[in-house]
Design a protein around this nucleic acid. Sequence first.
DNA 1: GATATAATTTAGCTATACCTAAATATGGGT
DNA 2: ACCCATATTTAGGTATAGCTAAATTATATC
Lengths: 221, 221
Amino acid sequence: MTYTRSEENCLKAIFTITEQGEHGGSTTAIAAQLRTKASSVTEMVKRLSEKGLVDHKPYHGVLLTEPGNRIATRVIRRHRLWETFLVNHLNFRWDEVHDLAEQLEHIDSDELHDRLDKFMDHPKFDPHGDPIPDKDGRMIDMAGALPLAEVPKDTLVHIVGVKDSSPAFLKLLDGLGLKLGTQLTVNRRFEYDNSVEVSSRFRNGLLLNEQVSRNLTVKPL
Amino acid sequence: MTYTRSEENCLKAIFTITEQGEHGGSTTAIAAQLRTKASSVTEMVKRLSEKGLVDHKPYHGVLLTEPGNRIATRVIRRHRLWETFLVNHLNFRWDEVHDLAEQLEHIDSDELHDRLDKFMDHPKFDPHGDPIPDKDGRMIDMAGALPLAEVPKDTLVHIVGVKDSSPAFLKLLDGLGLKLGTQLTVNRRFEYDNSVEVSSRFRNGLLLNEQVSRNLTVKPL
DNA sequence: GATATAATTTAGCTATACCTAAATATGGGT
DNA sequence: ACCCATATTTAGGTATAGCTAAATTATATC
Ligand SMILES: [Mn+2]
Ligand SMILES: [Mn+2]
Ligand SMILES: [Mn+2]
Ligand SMILES: [Mn+2]
């Protein structure tokens, strides 16, 4: 079986939405994720449903079936493998690779991606800290990781991921000297705007707004 | 400007056909190359013509304009770079890479392909002996190369390319121990069926039929 | 110069994948 | 139990990219 780019993107969107807690992706949420319109999603979901890749209870959301989940996971695997390749071997920056991976993830070949995986020695994480599924769809689970926004004061943590892979966000982090592995402690939180003040080995009293602290994933050490 | 997969494939087909001597690709020849129908080509050519990528004189063939030629060359560059990467770095065999490259060649990014080129240290030939255009479209010209079928008796030559990249043909060559660089001499030619008998360092009296000798490109030493 | 053959184009149809605007259904709150 | 804001679907349209079958056109041969 081979699926179209749009089908794969739709399955991936549903995966991402349902993974983030939602109990079934709404037509609207999927449309937002795909930057398309709800009516287009209705049609796409109908087709995916006929192919047995999703379960759709109108007004109650779309869920991936087991085959649908397998395909979505495979697309995510490919995306993350390519991002890793582009950064580690072609010397792209972490803020440059997402859009390229959006194209490359649709190349139709398990063999290619398994060889790419092997070539890189089976990397476990992509440049943004996201776990890379192995060929059976298994990946390291991120238990213990949480948004910086939810870290208690005076806890030593290190950055393990970013929720937002947009160039703008990643460039901001670069500009602040924050990257995967950077160790941080929350010194103060301001109720006024939910901003947090953090310190690292290199920098003291760095003020991060709520948007930033929500999009930084960290893990206590 | 960004072009669709079908547009790129059509331009590439016209390039290949006109390169092989034809004075303008006929609708039928293009259709055969693309494994599509003449009527589909008519429509495609109309669109390419409106975009200024081809000149079409009905019943006298389609020719690439300078912009059309640039795009076709770029697609060929990408195809050959990917084939080289797949063979040299992911350990694919030379008979496995063509179809994958047909997909990868449409990834829309000069930056990616220039970096891939650099990563491989600017290879000059792909795994089938075809010259790889550089980022300005220039490539080594194959003057002096000719089909084995046209080599005079007792001339020492070596294999520099294959005209046919199909898995079937390449597997046949593998099976006969013939590969790029192999040195050959034509011992005898048989008028009956245009077959030739060749010798290499490893093998004496190997009989090759016309189809094979036409698809093997060699160069005198 | 007429004509037949083969190449080419046109007409009309299908499928995917988008869109906007209009219609409709639902579930939470009253 | 009802209503309505909102989510969702339907209707109808566009563009790309195929297809088959029918019509048309040019060229090469007689
Ligand atoms: Mn990404
Ligand atoms: Mn990523
Ligand atoms: Mn090839
Ligand atoms: Mn090749």
